[in-house]
Amino acid sequence: MASQGTKRSYEQMETDGERQNATEIRASVGKMIDGIGRFYIQMCTELKLSDYEGRLIQNSLTIERMVLSAFDERRNKYLEEHPSAGKDPKKTGGPIYKRVDRKWMRELVLYDKEEIRRIWRQANNGDDATAGLTHMMIWHSNLNDTTYQRTRALVRTGMDPRMCSLMQGSTLPRRSGAAGAAVKGVGTMVMELIRMIKRGINDRNFWRGENGRKTRSAYERMCNILKGKFQTAAQRAMMDQVRESRNPGNAEIEDLIFLARSALILRGSVAHKSCLPACVYGPAVASGYDFEKEGYSLVGIDPFKLLQNSQVYSLIRPNENPAHKSQLVWMACNSAAFEDLRVLSFIRGTKVSPRGKLSTRGVQIASNENMDAMESSTLELRSRYWAIRTRSGGNTNQQRASAGQISVQPAFSVQRNLPFDKPTIMAAFTGNTEGRTSDMRAEIIRMMEGAKPEEMSFQGRGVFELSDERAANPIVPSFDMSNEGSYFFGDNAEEYDN
């Protein structure tokens, strides 16, 4: 993207840094990872977990959730003011799984939030270390993106479920800051804005008074975040219109849905970061690795190297396929839920299948599930090659597409044709070009129609051997075009429920 120079890199967003050079960025990201790792080690000690239990991804998720809940100030305040039966607002906890007599047992633990905050700050040299908290939120978000298709949420806001490739980060909490905003897809931002506008339509006082002023500035800020994701002048001009509207209503909703559809071809720039579970960072720190000293990046080879040398386990339900569970977590670790499966298959070195073909449910185990038949197995999170994460949407291309997802959002900077089903997408653009945004709409449609099938995206960008740390010898991959490109292809993934 041309304006790259004016933006802070995501590592800076990730670490609240002012302008830093590459070495400083690597050190501050490393410091953040160190903090998460030290916190995780301490929690495993508190909970008396064995090494194996500490490497269980379900335990990692519970521990991450506990610290996120302990620092969720708004919710904590709300819980104190609106006490609900049987919930102690000062405590947080969740299921911890232990191996007892050759069987997995679930144990519900409860801790004072104050105590968890103390352990977290102690692991982070006394700081609140917001960057580390956001990092864990993005890992949870990436896992949700890989596990669930947001059909219901899309339909509720009037969008087409086939636009799911635009929904990265749709389950990120509001408090995820600049680093969170960077990884949100165009569809996620559109959905947040539509929800806001709908509230304004239904509630006369939404934009009024002292609160209304705050609401208005939040609305304009979200519009600017979305505008910054678009790469064409016409899309940005249309966002200006939406932002400046005196009284946002149905016309703005129409414009936003139009823009979301246009992003299936004229893709937005959305950041991709490899955020790993805390149970990967903990053992690495415990083994003596100093992330701050060595430096770390979320968008280069580092996460690949770390996963190459990590042992992570997962509980497996009786009829689940461990290899499929591994694929789910591998995609989440690489922030690749909406990437082209052919690119992923090449990088991973084994075939990556669409969601609907995987015999696996989510990673988390519900409290009512029976533990008797639970097994555990090693997650295979290694890769054959590594590639640089991208934040450009890439230019655009036609490809055989599917009944489910009709476009992709690249996660890796790797040369390819970008699949999208042009006739299906263009069919949504018939007729409606009147109104105050008509010239911009016409211009956007013209650009979409001009998108050429034979153009290559990320020209000359390749993948790298894991021994090639400096990215000196790019390998331009070859793809098996007979395979499906979309992950949520004609899909039956479970729906995400809060």
Rank of each mutant, 00 (worst) to 15 (best):
97 Y>M: 05
55 R>E: 06
415 Q>L: 14
166 L>D: 10
100 V>T: 12
223 C>G: 10
79 L>P: 04
100 V>A: 14
8 R>S: 00
143 L>R: 07
232 T>Y: 10
78 Y>S: 01
124 N>C: 12
490 G>S: 06
171 T>R: 01
21 N>R: 13
225 I>A: 01
226 L>Y: 09
68 L>K: 07
160 D>I: 08
465 E>P: 00
182 A>V: 09
67 V>N: 14
234 A>N: 07
93 G>A: 06
339 E>Q: 07
247 N>V: 11
117 R>K: 09
287 S>M: 11
50 S>D: 05
282 G>W: 08
314 S>T: 14
433 T>Q: 13
60 S>G: 14
228 G>F: 06
467 S>F: 12
420 F>P: 00
269 S>C: 14
182 A>I: 02
389 R>I: 03
72 D>N: 07
437 T>D: 15
312 V>Y: 04
145 D>W: 09
198 K>H: 05
253 I>K: 07
347 I>V: 14
260 A>C: 14
215 T>Y: 01
136 M>S: 02
99 R>Y: 12
415 Q>S: 15
344 L>I: 12
446 R>V: 11
205 N>W: 06
367 S>N: 14
154 L>H: 05
152 R>V: 03
377 S>A: 11
339 E>T: 01
450 G>S: 07
223 C>R: 10
9 S>R: 00
405 Q>V: 02
277 P>Y: 08
97 Y>Q: 10
18 E>H: 13
43 M>V: 13
48 K>R: 09
333 C>S: 15
93 G>W: 11
330 W>G: 05
291 F>R: 08
60 S>F: 04
97 Y>R: 11
54 G>T: 13
225 I>D: 05
235 Q>G: 05
333 C>L: 04
116 I>Y: 01
296 Y>G: 03
107 E>C: 08
449 E>N: 15
363 V>M: 09
343 V>D: 04
498 N>K: 15
304 F>K: 01
34 D>C: 12
5 G>S: 15
480 D>S: 15
44 C>R: 11
473 N>R: 15
442 A>W: 00
247 N>T: 09
190 V>M: 13
81 E>S: 09
331 M>F: 03
379 L>S: 03
180 G>C: 08
452 K>A: 08
212 G>L: 10
378 T>Y: 07
431 G>T: 07
300 G>D: 05
304 F>S: 05
430 T>N: 14
196 M>D: 04
182 A>D: 01
143 L>A: 03
453 P>V: 05
55 R>I: 07
382 R>V: 03
386 W>H: 13
103 K>F: 00
430 T>P: 15
205 N>E: 02
108 L>Y: 06
260 A>M: 11
143 L>Y: 05
378 T>L: 12
174 R>M: 10
390 T>P: 09
334 N>L: 01
259 L>K: 01
102 R>C: 11
449 E>R: 06
485 G>Q: 03
418 L>G: 00
53 E>L: 06
313 Y>P: 07
57 I>L: 15
396 T>M: 03
231 Q>A: 13
259 L>N: 11
465 E>F: 00
221 R>Y: 05
9 S>P: 00
413 S>F: 08
456 M>W: 14
50 S>A: 15
440 M>F: 13
99 R>K: 15
126 G>T: 13
304 F>Y: 08
298 L>G: 08
258 F>A: 05
461 R>W: 11
39 F>W: 15
487 Y>A: 01
194 I>N: 01
362 G>K: 07
479 F>R: 11
427 A>Q: 09
170 S>I: 03
74 R>Y: 02
69 S>F: 05
400 R>V: 04
352 V>S: 11
86 G>R: 12
334 N>V: 03
435 G>H: 01
97 Y>F: 14
212 G>T: 08
458 F>E: 01
467 S>P: 01
248 P>Q: 13
277 P>M: 12
455 E>K: 08
310 S>M: 01
381 L>C: 10
338 F>H: 12
421 D>T: 11
493 A>S: 03
415 Q>F: 12
467 S>V: 13
277 P>R: 10
434 E>Q: 14
393 G>C: 08
261 R>M: 10
137 M>D: 06
245 S>T: 07
449 E>D: 13
349 G>Q: 10
455 E>T: 14
375 E>D: 14
460 G>H: 09
56 L>D: 07
478 S>F: 13
49 L>E: 04
405 Q>F: 05
45 T>H: 07
99 R>I: 11
173 P>Q: 15
299 V>P: 06
94 G>W: 07
492 N>D: 10
143 L>K: 08
410 P>C: 14
66 M>S: 09
346 F>H: 05
439 D>L: 01
243 R>L: 03
128 D>T: 14
462 G>A: 11
430 T>Y: 01
253 I>T: 13
463 V>S: 10
141 S>C: 10
114 E>G: 05
411 A>D: 00
455 E>W: 00
211 N>L: 15
284 A>T: 05
158 G>C: 13
85 A>W: 00
271 A>H: 03
185 G>H: 12
153 A>S: 12
25 I>K: 10
172 L>C: 12
198 K>A: 08
114 E>F: 15
80 E>N: 11
115 E>Q: 09
448 M>N: 05
473 N>V: 03
454 E>P: 03
272 H>I: 02
296 Y>P: 10
118 R>Q: 11
485 G>R: 15
439 D>T: 02
437 T>Y: 01
428 A>E: 02
81 E>N: 12
454 E>S: 12
178 A>R: 13
439 D>E: 07
143 L>N: 04
425 I>Q: 00
266 L>W: 11
35 G>W: 04
241 Q>R: 06
169 G>A: 13
217 S>F: 07
313 Y>K: 02
128 D>A: 14
400 R>D: 02
239 M>W: 02
119 I>T: 13
249 G>S: 07
150 R>G: 12
67 V>G: 14
341 L>W: 10
487 Y>M: 05
385 Y>R: 13
122 Q>M: 09
250 N>F: 07
284 A>N: 07
71 F>M: 07
88 D>P: 00
113 K>Y: 02
373 A>G: 05
152 R>D: 04
12 Q>I: 06
174 R>W: 10
307 L>P: 03
43 M>L: 12
229 K>N: 13
466 L>D: 00
149 Q>I: 06
201 I>L: 15
337 A>Y: 06
62 T>M: 01
373 A>F: 15
175 R>G: 02
167 M>G: 09
266 L>T: 11
294 E>C: 13
412 F>A: 01
59 N>E: 05
486 S>I: 08
287 S>Q: 11
22 A>G: 02
160 D>W: 12
55 R>M: 07
462 G>C: 08
43 M>D: 03
40 Y>G: 01
186 V>Q: 15
475 I>G: 02
21 N>W: 01
288 G>Y: 09
343 V>P: 02
237 A>F: 01
387 A>M: 02
280 V>H: 07
62 T>F: 03
40 Y>K: 00
127 D>M: 06
382 R>S: 04
75 R>H: 07
44 C>G: 11
220 E>V: 06
218 A>I: 04
91 K>E: 07
169 G>Q: 04
256 L>K: 01
383 S>P: 00
280 V>K: 11
346 F>L: 14
133 L>A: 08
246 R>G: 10
171 T>A: 05
161 P>N: 04
34 D>A: 14
361 R>D: 03
463 V>W: 04
28 S>R: 11
53 E>S: 13
209 G>S: 12
79 L>S: 04
25 I>P: 12
400 R>P: 09
241 Q>T: 05
474 P>V: 13
227 K>D: 07
129 A>D: 00
372 D>F: 07
355 R>C: 10
476 V>A: 15
336 A>L: 15
10 Y>M: 06
9 S>C: 02
233 A>W: 03
11 E>T: 03
363 V>Q: 03
386 W>A: 07
381 L>R: 02
399 Q>W: 06
197 I>M: 13
312 V>C: 15
47 L>D: 10
43 M>G: 06
228 G>V: 09
395 N>E: 02
128 D>E: 10
348 R>G: 08
413 S>L: 06
449 E>K: 10
300 G>K: 09
493 A>I: 04
73 E>A: 11
233 A>M: 11
110 L>W: 06
122 Q>R: 08
465 E>C: 00
442 A>L: 12
429 F>Y: 15
296 Y>W: 08
96 I>D: 05
397 N>E: 00
446 R>A: 12
298 L>W: 04
482 S>K: 06
194 I>P: 02
320 E>A: 05
117 R>S: 12
300 G>W: 06
232 T>P: 06
398 Q>P: 02
403 A>H: 13
338 F>D: 03
162 R>L: 07
293 K>H: 15
280 V>N: 10
150 R>I: 08
352 V>Q: 13
198 K>N: 12
441 R>A: 07
212 G>F: 07
333 C>E: 02
205 N>I: 11
299 V>M: 14
49 L>T: 13
341 L>T: 13
157 T>W: 02
201 I>H: 02
410 P>M: 12
219 Y>V: 04
213 R>Y: 09
65 R>V: 07
217 S>C: 09
197 I>H: 00
